[in-house]
Amino acid sequence: MSLSRKHGVIALFVIIAGLLAFDLSHSAPLDPFRAPAILALGSGQAASGAHCAAAPGS
């Protein structure tokens, strides 16, 4: 049987599902009631996500 892209994608999704299952079992529980506002714009809150352009210590 020759392998196709479908097999690669299935393997990828199995790995992602495993990653997310592992993540959910090793992280602080999700809490939609403490979630930030749907839009950062107009929320009055400072941006808090991490970005690859952020220099160390910034």
């Binding site: 714009l41 970005h51 690859c52 352009a53």
Partner: peptide, 21 residues
């Protein structure tokens, strides 16, 4: 940008996946 408060990015997230592991 409007939703997250920061521009579109990619590579931080990938490193974070390994950092968690």
């Amino acid at each position: 940008l409007v939703v997250a408060g920061q521009p579109w990015g990619v590579v931080y997230g990938l490193g974070l996946w390994v950092a968690k592991g």
